[in-house]
């Protein structure tokens, strides 16, 4: 991570998702998950969704998952979300 970005962030107290281009996740209970700033969908079925995000991938596990909407920078996942985890890597 470039040093100047870290300094700028600590100096101006900017949101990290803006400075580092990280995904922003908003979750409503375990029913609704909004992922902003994702790159593409790697895998998708009723039991899980895998998304490519900046700096790795984000896996979401659950039941009856539906992509409620797919936008250019935002995807909304609905269903029973059981868990999610990040994997670092290209």
């Amino acid at each position: 991570m470039p040093q100047w970005k870290s300094m700028l962030n600590s100096l101006l107290d900017l949101p990290q998702d803006m400075v580092y281009n990280l995904p922003r996740l908003t979750m409503v209970g375990n029913r609704h998950l909004v992922i902003e700033n994702y790159l593409r969908i790697l895998a998708f079925d009723q039991g899980g969704v895998k998304l490519i995000v900046n700096g790795g991938s984000l896996s979401i596990r659950g039941d009856n998952l539906v992509l409620q909407s797919i936008g250019r920078e935002e995807v909304v996942v609905c269903g029973y979300i059981k868990g999610m985890f990040f994997e670092e890597g290209p």
Binding site: R40, I41, F44, L67, Q68, S69, I70, V75
Partner: peptide, 27 residues
């Protein structure tokens, strides 16, 4: 079909209600 979804996303084609069954995607 998954690559198709990603291409639609890049092309700013609005998609909603995306569901996956065994051999197809409903949207």
């Amino acid at each position: 079909r998954l690559e198709f979804l990603n291409t639609c996303q890049r092309s700013r084609i609005p998609l909603w209600g995306v569901k996956v069954s065994q051999d197809c995607i409903s949207l």
